[in-house]
Write a protein that binds this DNA or RNA. Structure first.
Length: 427
RNA sequence: GCCCCCGUCGACUAGCGGCCUAGGUCACAGCCCUUUCAAGGCUGUAGCACGGGUUCGAAUCCCGUCGGGGGCACCA
């Protein structure tokens, strides 16, 4: 008696992070139980946009690593079946025609209840249940009819969905009962809010999977973070691999109240994952990311720079601004100090051989001491001339990567040569 | 308006009657480390919405108030 769950997004656009949260809980539940996770597209309409969204949803799920079992199914394909079932209900007098539409006959006394796997016992007074429309007068079945019908046809054992569906449940339960179905269990997972406590929307930042991807978040981190919204393993464990998440997940530990999506905590976790990557893998991710975002920076150079930024940035998206100076000259963001250290540094660096970080550091430290300057006083002007900023990757490593000639050129004539060596085409 | 659900630091949460002078993480503050920025280490600020009960004992159970969210379509 393996479990079967489904994720049923509507193809209205890109995959919303709130939907992903629900999908993740379904997926973790299925994988933990050794059951199946189905992907069902709730399309009621055809059209180019819908087709594109359908593909986009699958691409996003693949990127996140949420693999589904079997073929993707489409609600549209069950329309005829739904109409047939609705007509049968009319024959059985469990539904009736109303101006061309078919309405379900809800009981008007008593209550409809179920024991929610997350919320616990929930009871609705039947007098509040409307006779819902099963099939519109134009022949198209409605969501509240097709959804439970599909759950029945797909033999779904556990309906795990957002709490915004709680009030649909009694209606669907009644419909399912009328169809003689064995009722599935229901679990309503908490909703996600934006930092202001309101519905997560564009004004909060990234909200679709594509946006998080473009911002330089990596799937492992996003999945781990999302799993912690409304669920916890114990009182202190937060960083968990995909396998650990699967092994430890259970609906028992899912909370009841809505959670606020915290971009800062996600960013922190993304940094944790990024730093934990083996250097080679990190470079691979960076190269792939930059390519996706349309940067045409030379791959070899990106790989050389990668280790210098790995422990400095928390999202891949920070790379372009943080490391742009490796690929093109960047004008100093502030005033250069008095020119005293710069000429001296250029002179000293010219004699460093081989031009490697350790030797460069030794030479520059010696210079600082000779000039009676603190390391910070001596190095910041060089950093500014070299990178254009007072915030950058390690100075000595950066000098090594840039090479002796380019380094000396920048130090000798800070701010010059701008516009040269442009090799980027950011979006 | 009606129905349903929820309510622990600013945020995510642990807590399922005594282990709680309420723990962890992010954020924030200070210190350390340090070539900048991060990372890391240490320390700190900060919370059981409120009011009644029940009990020897309540963050934990019950009731009410207040607050928040969701839903009330021939949308999904």
């Amino acid at each position: 008696m393996a479990v079967r769950v489904r994720f049923a997004p509507s193809p209205t656009g890109f995959l919303h992070i709130g939907s992903v949260h629900t999908a993740l809980f379904n997926w973790l539940f299925a994988r933990h139980k050794g059951g199946e996770f189905l992907l069902r597209i709730e399309n009621t309409d055809t059209g180019r946009e819908v087709a594109a969204a359908t593909e986009q949803i699958q691409e996003s799920l693949r990127w996140l690593g949420l693999d589904w079992d079997g073929d993707v199914t489409f609600q549209l394909d069950r329309m005829p079946k739904a109409q047939e079932v609705a007509n049968q209900l009319v024959v059985e007098e469990k539904a009736y025609e109303d101006e061309g539409a078919i309405r379900f006959r809800m009981p008007d006394e008593g209550t409809t209840a179920w024991d929610d796997l997350i919320l616990g016992p929930i009871e609705y007074p039947n007098e509040k249940l409307e006779d819902v429309v099963l099939v519109r007068s134009d022949g198209r079945p409605t969501y509240n009819f097709v959804s439970p019908l599909e759950d029945l046809l797909d033999e779904i054992t556990d309906v795990i969905r957002g709490q915004d569906h709680v009030s649909n449940t009694p209606k669907q339960l009644r419909i399912l009962a009328a169809l003689g179905a064995e009722l599935p269990r229901y679990a309503h997972v908490p909703l996600l809010n934006g930092p202001d406590g309101k519905k997560l929307s564009k004004r909060h930042g990234a909200i679709t999977v594509e946006e998080f991807r473009a911002a330089g978040f990596i799937p492992e981190a996003l999945v781990n973070y999302l799993a912690l919204l409304g669920w916890s393993y114990d009182d202190h464990t937060e960083v968990m691999s995909r396998d650990e998440l699967i092994e430890r997940f259970s609906l028992d530990r899912v909370g009841k109240s809505a959670a606020t999506f915290d971009y800062e905590k996600l960013t922190h976790m993304n940094g944790l994952y990024l730093r934990a990557l083996p250097p080679g893998k990190y470079a691979d991710r960076l190269v792939a990311y930059l390519r996706e975002q349309g940067y045409e920076w030379h791959e070899d150079l990106v790989r050389k720079v990668a280790p210098l930024v790995q422990e400095k940035i928390a999202t891949l998206g920070e790379f372009p601004s943080f490391a742009r100076f490796f690929f093109e000259r960047v004008p100093p963001e502030g005033p250069l100090e008095d020119g005293a250290v710069l000429p001296a540094a250029a002179e000293v660096l010219a004699r460093v051989e081989p031009f490697e970080a350790a030797a460069i550091e030794a030479a520059l430290r010696e210079l600082a001491e000779r000039l009676g300057l603190k390391p910070r006083q001596a190095f910041q002007p060089i950093r500014l001339a070299l990178t254009g900023s007072t915030v950058s990757p390690g100075l000595f490593e950066s000098l090594e990567v840039l090479g002796k000639d380019e380094s000396i050129a920048r130090i000798s004539a800070p701010g010059s040569g701008l516009g040269g060596a442009r090799g980027s085409s950011a979006r």
